[in-house]
């Protein structure tokens, strides 16, 4: 069997998801037994005209990004959005809450008008091209990435988990963060992370976006029940660009 060719690309983001690929460490060698990594700026100097699987990290913020992404889509058989920025905009979407000019001035000061800072509205990868799979998280879970890759190589279609973080949190036997008087986004946030944050004593930040059908009405009622405000919840949700 010919090894599938994998290419990894990055757009607006912190490259933390790519770092998670590097963090596979020994597993990287096993990965390379199974796939050929043909293009990866962070890990290799090679370039390739075409590939089977494209892993795309980051949000799409500039017109040239849109064109580049469309070219990647055309060259890839399977396109996987990697991480919160690629999947739903991630922290980049915070900028959407401000006037674009104001945001640029805050960040770049006097240089805000430079042509190379041609930022436009922030888009997730699937707002620009079709996406075959999403690996959620900020950053991604390297084990989830490796199982998605194995599944793709075997010819399966990786399924994005559609259950809330509570499921894995209960399986882990954790005490509910609400019992601790905290706001936790777990009940409406897509699981698959193994409830990592609650298991380590933090509330869920919602980095994996919401489940397909979050019950917003119920979430509001819960806040009321625990003496919290909707604004507190919205601020939490905004962090990772949840929609």
């Amino acid at each position: 069997m010919k090894k599938p060719r994998v290419a990894i690309f990055d757009f607006a983001g912190c490259e933390g998801c790519q770092l998670q690929i590097v963090n596979l460490e020994e597993e990287l060698l096993s990965l390379l037994e199974v796939v050929d990594v043909v293009e990866w700026r962070e890990g290799s100097s090679e370039k390739s005209p075409e590939f089977d699987i494209a892993l795309v990290e980051g949000a799409i913020t500039r017109p040239q990004d849109v064109r580049r992404l469309e070219q990647i889509r055309a060259r890839a058989k399977v396109l996987v959005a990697l991480g919160a920025c690629a999947s739903h905009g991630g922290v980049n979407k915070l900028r959407q809450r401000l006037d674009l000019g104001a945001a640029k001035r805050i960040v770049y000061g006097a240089s805000a008008r430079e042509a190379f800072l041609g930022s436009g509205p922030v888009q997730s990868v699937d707002e620009v091209v079709s996406v075959d799979a999403r690996i959620e998280g900020c950053p991604i879970d390297s084990q989830e990435l490796s199982s998605v890759l194995r599944s793709l190589v075997l010819g399966g279609e990786p399924k994005t988990p559609n259950f809330p973080v509570c499921v894995e949190c209960k399986r882990a036997g954790n005490v509910c963060r609400y019992e601790r008087g905290e706001i936790c986004l777990g009940p409406v946030t897509r699981g698959g992370c193994g409830a990592r944050c609650p298991s380590y004593g933090m509330w869920c930040y919602g980095c994996r976006g919401s489940v397909d059908e979050p019950n917003i009405h119920a979430a509001r009622a819960v806040l009321e029940r625990y003496g919290k405000t909707v604004q507190e919840l919205e601020e939490r949700l905004a962090l990772f660009g949840s929609r």
Partner: peptide, 29 residues
């Protein structure tokens, strides 16, 4: 209308026994 469909009630219940089945495969595929 107030149910989050989060599954917590089932997952702590001593008489809930439904299960899901999933395959995991190693790097040797």
């Amino acid at each position: 209308e107030y149910c989050l469909s989060c599954g917590a009630c089932n997952l702590v219940c001593p008489t809930c026994y439904c299960f899901d089945v999933q395959d995991v495969v190693g790097w040797d595929l």
